[in-house]
């Protein structure tokens, strides 16, 4: 631990109060849905504890329609393999509830294949945030029923064409 954690600890001490790390795991519908996806994107939105805990449906509907609003964090598009197990850690996270939105798509970001959202808050020793991904209305047309020729290994080591 010490060699890796020491710089982080020193940095945190230097800036004063700490933020909590948040571990995020994406739960894909199945392996095939993962293989059909090429890119993923994570967005985090602050939500009002009083009336914002139910923000997910609107955020998902908007995001699938291409309106990403004003997220606090945006991972931008990144290879889907970079988002699989053991997941993502946000290491600089402020207090309070947030909505974690995850999207997966092929080369066309306008046609989202999978989407999911979960409200959670970051605090010390909080459990990992698991986001369930579900096929969008675009999935069937975009994929067309043909199975991916890739395996998990070949897709993520770049040997699958």
């Amino acid at each position: 631990m010490t060699r890796r954690a020491a710089p982080l600890l020193a940095l945190a001490l230097a800036v004063g109060c700490a933020n909590a790390p948040v571990e995020l795991t994406l739960r894909f519908p199945n392996e095939q849905a993962f293989l059909q996806s090429d890119f993923g994107r994570l967005l985090v939105y602050p939500v009002d504890p009083a009336d914002g805990l139910g923000a997910c449906p609107a955020l998902v509907e908007s995001a699938v329609s291409g309106d990403l609003g004003a997220p606090r964090y945006d991972s931008e598009q990144r290879p889907i393999c970079a988002l699989r197990d053991p997941g993502i850690t946000f290491d600089d996270f402020p207090e309070g509830p947030h909505a974690f939105v995850a999207l997966a798509y092929r080369d066309d970001p306008q046609a989202t294949l999978l989407a999911g959202c979960r409200v959670a808050e970051a605090y010390v020793d909080a459990p990992a945030v698991e986001v369930t991904m579900f096929p969008t209305r675009f999935y069937a047309d975009a994929v067309g029923g043909a199975p991916s020729p890739c395996t998990l290994e070949s897709k993520c080591n770049g040997t699958c064409q």
Binding site: G54, C56, P57, V60, P97, G116, C117, A120
Partner: peptide, 8 residues
Amino acid sequence: AAGGVLPG
């Protein structure tokens, strides 16, 4: 995947 049945 839509955040649950009740808010959060």
